[in-house]
Structure formats: C-alpha cells, structure tokens
C-alpha cells in the first residue's frame, strides 16, 4: 500500500524539504497576506496565501514565477500570526529552492562580488543576515587561485548590508541602489544642506 500520492509533484516536493512540511495545513484564511509588510508596503501582488495554493495545486510555473517566491525576507511576522502555526517562510523557501533547482533565477538583483579586489576578510559573510555569502576558493584572473567571497543568489535579498560593510568596495548592488546612485543622492543632499545652512 505505498502511497496514493505522486512524490514528484510540487506539493510533495515542497513537503519533503525541511520547513515545507506543513504546506497542506493551510486553510486559506489570508492572515499572512494582510500581516505581510512586503505586501502592504512594497509589492501589492505579493501574496503568501496564493503561493501556498499554487504549491498545493502543483502549479509549478505559476509558483516559480510568483513574486512571493523571490521577495520573502523571512521576517516571520506571518508565522506568529498564522492560526495554523504554519512556518510560511519555510514553505516559501522550499518553493524557492525548487524553483532554483529547476533553473529559475530571481528576477530581482543580488549582491555581486568584485573578485579582482576581494581580500576574503569575511566581514560580509559574518554580517549577512540571510547567510547568503560564503568564502570559496577559486581561480581569479590575474590573481591565481585565491579565497574570495561568493553570493548565493537564492538566499541574497539585496539588502545591501554587505555593500555597506565592505571596506574595499568589493561587493555591491549593481542595479537599484547602486554605489553611484547613492553617492549622487548623498552629494545632492549635502548641497542642499550647505545651501540651507
């Protein structure tokens, strides 16, 4: 009597990943969605409840393309609010892991390491709240095989903490909130300060 369920479906695979076990317990009350700061402050189409439904119905494509999959910061506000005690960020993380496994990439930016200047001091690794950075040994052009920081694109939330912390500006956000933009806005702020004082 082995199994009425097919272990290759999205829902079964999510359940098999630690954190995703309670997927089927959701009764779709929507508390998570209205509790979520990302949904209320940043991205209106973000919806953890819908993502759970997509996983339950094995809608791989929809789930992997869903912004919810990529934007969760695991703040776990929803976890404390969920009446079913589902660790929702764990479920989202499981979906994300499967999305990455199937070759999907985050549509959002991630931190990039400049390997030509990285000295592997490990500051970014220690300071990253998402444990997305690790030190790896690799061949770097003109520098031989050395240790440098490496960003796991699946875990990086582009918060920029590593960029701010790096002493040699060897890790950065390339698109939104990049260094040049920040310097520009800082300078224009200084200008206005100077004018007003």
């Amino acid at each position: 009597m082995s199994g009425f369920t097919d272990s290759s479906t999205l829902s079964e695979r999510v359940k098999a990943i630690p954190g995703g076990e309670m997927l089927m317990m959701c009764y779709s009350c929507g508390t998570c969605t209205s509790k979520c700061m990302i949904q209320t402050k940043l991205e209106g189409s973000y919806n953890p409840r819908r993502l759970i439904r997509e996983a339950v119905f094995n809608m791989d494509d929809d789930a992997f393309a869903d912004k919810t999959t990529w934007l969760c910061t695991a703040c776990d506000l929803c976890y404390t609010a969920c009446p079913q005690k589902i660790h929702i960020s764990g479920v989202i993380n499981a979906v994300k892991a499967l999305a990455v496994e199937s070759g999907k990439k985050t549509p959002y930016q991630v931190a990039k390491v400049d390997e030509s200047t990285c000295v592997a001091c490990g500051l970014c690794e220690k300071i990253c709240p998402y444990e997305a950075i690790s030190l790896v040994e690799k061949r770097v052009a003109f520098r031989g095989t050395i240790t440098v920081a490496s960003v796991d694109a699946n875990k990086c939330m582009a918060c920029g903490l590593c960029t701010a912390a790096c002493r040699s500006t060897s890790i950065r956000l390339a698109e939104d909130y990049n260094d040049a933009e920040l310097i520009d806005s800082l300078l224009s702020w200084l200008e206005t300060e100077r004018v007003s004082s």
């Binding site: 200047t117 990285c118 000295v119 002493r167 040699s168 500006t169 060897s170 310097i183």
Partner: peptide
C-alpha cells in the same frame, strides 16, 4: 589595512 584596492583608490564610483 590589507585591502587589495583601498576605497580611496576606487575609481568608479569615486568615494
């Protein structure tokens, strides 16, 4: 101070 490239030597963007 052992950085490969010090922030003052960084050209683009210049800090």
């Amino acid at each position: 101070c052992y950085c490969e490239e010090c922030f003052v030597d960084h050209v683009s963007p210049r800090w």
